[in-house]
Design a binder for these strands. Structure first.
Length: 617
DNA sequence: GAAGCATTGCG
DNA sequence: GCAATGCTT
């Protein structure tokens, strides 16, 4: 061992194999492994409960692996990563820092600053692309006595009950990731293509959280896939080949999401198609709440939303269904939906989710048409032909015959009665009818083009920007709802369908916050329709029924999922972290990803793997 | 009841 | 943009 002592800064590369930064540290001599928990730096993308739970487990596995190698993981609680790193450097006398690249807008800025500050402090900083194969097998030798770990709290008391259930379904940590990878590659991958249409099949990889936290090297995944590809091609196994290709595409999509995030650091908050900023999104917290709670009246959507809330996980197909419904039928601002995914998904991944929501929203140049509406009824019979998925997550519909399970509003009264379904009472009528959504969408698009033309005219006339009631057309996004508490009156069941829709014309995307746009849900007629349920009629999540594969039998306890997210809060953005990202992103922190361009990963080709990339889960 | 036309689903 | 389905006369 020569040289000095180096810091290896772990972030979302929580593995010891195939880890270039760690390998470099080992080569350089003594290694001090550090993880800094500084969630405040993430602005309003503070990791959600299930995501933090995963992190906690994963760090613990990493720590024990490092201990086996003769060192351990030092954790620091901080509001400023850079000063924490400096502190560790001072107390250990390290003179080098190694880390692997991240590509989300916040990391790009932070890592750039880290490099700058530490370099100015005489520290050699090197960063790496972690998509390379390394075998860093040497014994580490870190003197940690001068640098105590701090306890970082990733789980508070109130979360323990719910989190306990996660452990029955998932095994975080790089060693487990490796096992999961092998299990998938040797098993479900073969039938992956065949089964991908089923919402409820357990044939997805379930690798997305492992990949998000860097417990797996994507490079390794890629190599295994290629080996399978060659093997099955030689055997003439077309089904297997098709599956591999499909999976490779999803890996590609993940790469593409990093590419997009790096080159368009605003893509998590602004549409890539300029005219979409003139789209009159429906700012209706009642709709938003109904969607979150799985009370839209469309069984497939509702089943998905309840699964998400109860388990932190959703099949990719269903992610597409619920997000498409969110944007096209409810016409809610897609950033709200994205934020909710961020808060609730176990594999929440800013880059992948931004790509997914942008694609679904039709705000990508190569996305799907904006005026296309997917019909959850048809999608229901496609992805859940026997209604098993719906019955699992919507107990109130469990006795409904398959014929009506995806469109109970059409069912004859006697059928509903026999099934114990009372529409508008124990299950809502459709919150928005598809036909109404279609015409509303057309109107909105017309409006959008008018707004754009008006805006252009104003700019051409040399006037300062200003659009209708939007005095901040340049910088006013639609704020995240701050408070979801809404009065819901049981007596307003079967309220008249919404006849008016309140819209806001501001660009929801440009960073900077305002709360003045928020509409109280109870000011809207629609909210009463949403309130088809009494507030306390919490959905009972079915027990022991979560579909998962093989020996992992996740169980869901109704007590642990204390009701649906009716009091869910989206905090208004307070930081303007992302504002800086576009200016600083080219500061040399992260190299441009080689051999990647948007065309080679055309989104259309990858439909179905949008969220969390190779997550397909 | 066949042919021509329009609408809708879908990648 | 195409194919399938439904609707009209």
């Amino acid at each position: 061992m020569s040289g000095g002592c180096s810091i290896v800064w772990f972030r979302r590369d929580l593995r010891v194999e195939d880890n270039p930064a760690l390998a470099a540290g080992v080569r350089a001599g003594q290694v001090i492994a550090v993880f800094v928990w500084a969630p405040e730096e993430e602005g309003h993308y503070y990791p959600g409960r299930v995501s933090r739970w995963w992190l906690k487990q994963s760090l613990s596995v990493l720590d024990s692996s490092l201990k086996n190698l003769g060192t351990s993981l030092i954790t620091k609680r901080s509001t400023d990563s850079v000063s924490s790193l400096l502190q560790v450097i001072k107390s250990t006398g390290a003179n080098q820092l190694f880390f692997n690249h991240l590509y989300d807008p916040i990391s790009l800025v932070r890592d750039h600053r880290t490099k700058e500050v530490l370099t100015n402090n005489g520290i050699a900083v090197r960063s790496f692309n972690a998509d390379l194969l390394y075998e860093p097998w040497e014994v580490l030798d870190g003197d940690l006595s001068k640098c105590p770990s701090e306890t970082i709290i990733l789980e508070d008391e109130s979360e323990k009950g719910s989190n306990a259930l996660l452990a029955r379904a998932w095994s975080p940590g790089w060693k487990n990731a490796d096992k999961a990878l092998a299990a998938f590659m040797n098993g479900p991958l073969l039938e992956y293509s065949k089964n991908r249409r089923k919402a409820d099949s357990a044939t997805t990889s379930f690798l997305s959280p492992h990949l998000h936290f860097g417990e797996l090297s994507v490079r390794k995944v890629f190599h295994i896939l290629r080996m399978k590809q060659v093997l099955w091609a030689n055997e003439g196994n077309t089904a297997g080949e098709e599956s591999v290709n499909l999976f490779l595409k999803s890996i590609g999509l993940r790469e593409y999401s990093r590419y997009m995030s790096f080159n368009h650091p605003y893509s998590h908050e602004r549409p890539l198609l300029g005219h979409l900023k003139f789209f009159p999104w429906v700012v209706d917290e009642g709709y938003f709440k109904a969607w979150r709670q799985g009370r839209t009246g469309y069984p497939l959507v509702d089943a998905g939303m309840r699964e998400l809330w109860a388990t932190g996980w959703l099949h990719d197909r269903i992610r597409v269904v619920v997000s498409s419904f969110f944007v096209k039928v409810l016409q809610l601002p897609w950033r709200w939906g994205m934020k909710y995914f961020w808060d609730t998904l176990l594999d929440a991944d800013l880059e992948s989710d931004a790509l997914g929501w942008q694609y679904i929203s039709g705000t990508l140049p190569d996305g799907r048409e904006f005026d296309r509406i997917d019909n959850p009824q048809f999608e229901g019979y496609k992805f859940d032909p026997n209604g098993e998925y719906v019955r699992r997550w919507l107990p109130e519909l469990s006795r409904l015959p398959t014929e009506w399970i995806h469109h109970p509003w059409d069912a004859p009264e006697y059928v509903l009665q026999a099934a114990g379904v009372e529409l508008g009472s124990n299950y809502p009528l459709p919150i928005v009818k598809i036909d109404a959504a279609k015409s509303r969408l057309q109107e909105a698009l017309t409006q959008m083009w008018q707004n754009e033309a008006a805006s252009r005219a104003i700019i051409e006339n040399g006037l300062e920007e200003g659009l209708g009631d939007s005095s901040e057309a340049d910088g006013a996004p639609i704020a995240f709802p701050q408070d979801m508490e809404m009065e819901m009156d049981e007596n307003t069941l079967r309220a008249a369908p919404t006849t008016t829709t309140i819209r806001h014309y501001e660009d929801q995307m440009v960073p900077s916050m305002t709360t003045s746009l928020i509409i109280r849900g109870d000011e809207e007629s629609s909210s009463s329709e949403v309130g088809n349920f009494a507030e306390d009629s919490r959905i009972e999540v079915p027990i022991n029924q979560m579909a998962r594969t093989g020996n992992m039998q996740p169980q869901v306890d109704a007590n642990a999922t204390t009701g649906l997210p009716d009091s869910y809060h989206l905090q208004a953005e307070s930081s303007n972290t992302s504002r800086a990202s576009s200016r600083e992103r080219d500061g040399g922190v992260v190299p441009v990803i080689c051999n990647l361009n948007a065309r080679s990963w055309k989104v259309e080709d990858n439909f179905g793997f949008l969220f969390s990339g190779p997550s397909l889960i």
